[in-house]
Nucleic acid binder design. Structure first.
Lengths: 192, 192
DNA sequence: CCGGTAAGTGGACTATAGTCCAGATGTGCC
DNA sequence: GGCACATCTGGACTATAGTCCACTTACCGG
């Protein structure tokens, strides 16, 4: 989505080293302890850098989460843009929509605490990050018959909000949620 | 919903005075300044009480918001439980559901920043407060034909999450959102 | 190799939510 | 009235996110 107009001004070698050190340390800490309970100070400490460096690189806690999820997220976006059908282009809209629901849930449920951090840390973070716009646009395109695809896409995405999923998974379990999402999304794809 | 089993142990008069002072001060501050930007210290200061008192009374920031919204929320619950039809008992389920959607949106959109604070301040706050359970149960009852009314009710409520509404109102405007919600909720009430 | 400079660094600083508890105070009972 | 005691109070304290800026360092052209 976001094309880089000016070629990235080249990152200094010490900066690159520190970015890697931070991502390593953060991945380790988040794997070992509860994501919620790891502080930015701990991450900085474990990475051997100052707090200022950590925040300059990643902006805030949700930015750090986004960076850690980057690879998985890109892979999903890649598969959507140019992968084989069902998920990628070529299949009928309704089927592509359901394939997306499944793939997105695979991703979100596997990394739920991190995804939640990426959406929650600062107010409105979820709706500002580029990924949300990407998913929204993708869904919009897959709802050609909808009276208001724009609104509908937001409504479908609300069902996979990490905070929302975290709250209902313990209550309903993943399978029931997946089934419910499939049902409601395919109804939305096929308006009467 | 939550019945009080033990009669409330009677609140001391100084405590009652302070609760009122806090609610007054908070209502005034939130009316004058952006809800986000008012700190609990400011509220305590303006109410002329210590911080400890403020937190003992209301638990946290979201608890304070809940208390401020209490009257409006109770009125809506009252109307649902024993008010005249469409909103209250008596009308066909699908119509009651739409009446609820409208009434809830009246409430939420009118007080959006406060409602958002009541749902956001602490992690998962929204799903823990009694009101959420009430709305969920109410919707469940109005979806007798649904394959999984429990899940569906959560999905419909996700559309009126204050954080979600705050993000899409500037983009789509209230009317389009109300229309979208009416459309999707009535589809859910009437499964094929 | 060297000097200029933009980019990067780290830790002190601020703001804020929320905790804790020693001491003050209202209430019920005699 | 006054005693016993549960409740309440306020502010000092902690934890944490995020800002700021004087200093350092990698890089580039000469």
């Amino acid at each position: 989505m976001e094309l880089l107009r000016t070629p990235p001004p080249k990152e200094r070698s010490d900066a690159a080293r520190n970015r890697a050190a931070i991502l390593d340390a953060a991945a380790r800490l988040f794997a070992e302890h509860d994501v919620e309970s790891v502080s930015m100070d701990q991450v900085a400490e474990a990475a051997g850098v100052g707090k200022g460096t950590l925040f300059r690189r990643f902006g805030d806690k949700s930015g750090l989460a986004v960076a850690l999820l980057d690879a998985r997220e890109r892979a999903l976006q890649e598969a959507i843009l140019s992968g084989p059908p069902l998920l990628g282009p070529g299949a009928p809209e309704a089927e592509r929509l359901l394939a997306f629901a499944d793939a997105y849930l695979d991703y979100a449920l596997e990394h739920l605490p991190l995804v939640r951090m990426s959406e929650t840390a600062s107010v409105g973070a979820r709706y500002r990050i580029g990924a949300y716009r990407f998913w929204h646009r993708h869904i919009t395109i897959l709802l050609p018959g909808s009276p208001d695809a724009d609104y509908t896409a937001h409504a479908l995405l609300a069902q996979v909000d990490a905070e929302h999923l975290s709250a209902i998974v313990p209550e309903l379990g993943e399978e029931r949620i997946r089934a419910g999402i499939r049902r409601l999304w395919s109804d939305a794809a096929d308006p009467r």
